[in-house]
Design a protein around this nucleic acid. Sequence first.
DNA 1: TAGATTGTTAATCGATTAACAATC
DNA 2: TAGATTGTTAATCGATTAACAATC
Lengths: 211, 211
Amino acid sequence: MNKDNISKSVIRRLPRYYRFLSELEEQRIDRISSGRLAEIMRSTASQVRQDLNCFGGFGHQGYGYSVPKLKEEIANILGLDKNHTAILIGAGHIGTAIAAHMEFNKLGFNLVGIFDNNRDIFGNDINGLKILDEKTLEDFCGENNVEVAFLCIPRGAAPEIVKRLYDAGVRCYWNFTHYYIQGDFPDAIVENVHLSDMLMTLCYSMNELGD
Amino acid sequence: MNKDNISKSVIRRLPRYYRFLSELEEQRIDRISSGRLAEIMRSTASQVRQDLNCFGGFGHQGYGYSVPKLKEEIANILGLDKNHTAILIGAGHIGTAIAAHMEFNKLGFNLVGIFDNNRDIFGNDINGLKILDEKTLEDFCGENNVEVAFLCIPRGAAPEIVKRLYDAGVRCYWNFTHYYIQGDFPDAIVENVHLSDMLMTLCYSMNELGD
DNA sequence: TAGATTGTTAATCGATTAACAATC
DNA sequence: TAGATTGTTAATCGATTAACAATC
């Protein structure tokens, strides 16, 4: 169970394994071979076995993998049972959608606060959480042991907000802005969501199509 | 200017080049060397030169690259001046946020329709577009030559909707659902946004932190 | 036991980095 | 011209795929 030195590429595939295993479990499929799983994932049997073996021998020779057991193992590896204390900053379109839409408790997180700088929406309710004044950020982080922030603010506001969060002890960020956090805080743990980058990539692929 | 066989990894970096070049341009910086650009991008000079040379010699030996010219070239490669006719399906939290928030015209797209199956919100206005009845999807696609669909619907609704879109001639998808489009339509051009996968990956990284 | 399928090592492939001659 | 920096080839590194012995 040597969890060290697992490559980023493997980690990025784990949620997909988890999803497809969940679907298989719903279909009451109890065992699966690396070959069949690879087919479903559009991967290769080799890669499946290679990936899963990073974490230990979950399979049985001559039999395959137990779907519920494997799903459970991957959930553990990802830490989906965790309850990382999270806040969301920026209750605009994206922020509100994220706060209202994601099932954080199934993903290892516990959203405990939503912040904005627009006093007109202070107190508004999103999924049972009131929008709080950004000014109280530091106090809130201290009192609630906040581990991670979801940044749904404009690019321009990001450097200041991240500095304040970092000083308040927050080290992890789900970053919807284009601010390059690791440039200023190299030890921060960051997952970037650059929606416009993805659209540009799609645009490129579409242009290739016509050629 | 051999645009064939450009690897996906290079393409995925182009939007970042574009963003940083835009910032440099704003700062009135007119020329830049591969080394300096690499520093900004947290990349290497080698990679920068290798990447940019996929598309042709944009640089000048002994001088570097012209910031505005390079930015322009990358915009052209990505096709940001295009106006791909797009529709959005699903005016829930995420769909509304996307429709209201993204600057599609700067990203090569033109959003011309928003659809939902909830009659209570038909006619509601999002950024100047009225929410339309999903039933009229096929007619609309035919009349407007829709090239690409942004899928902000629940996973369960995706297979049917994509089938209808595909039959109506739509081949490109920005997919916020977990439905695996290419499984059923191998020639579709798809850009997936799996927000929950990203959160799981972040969760994993956070767990590693403590070890 | 025979058949199936894993765990794991070796081979291949692709992407990144280094080096350097070309040239502005 | 000398210095700087590209374009491009070669070397390295990492990730994917193939092969096969171990074993259920």
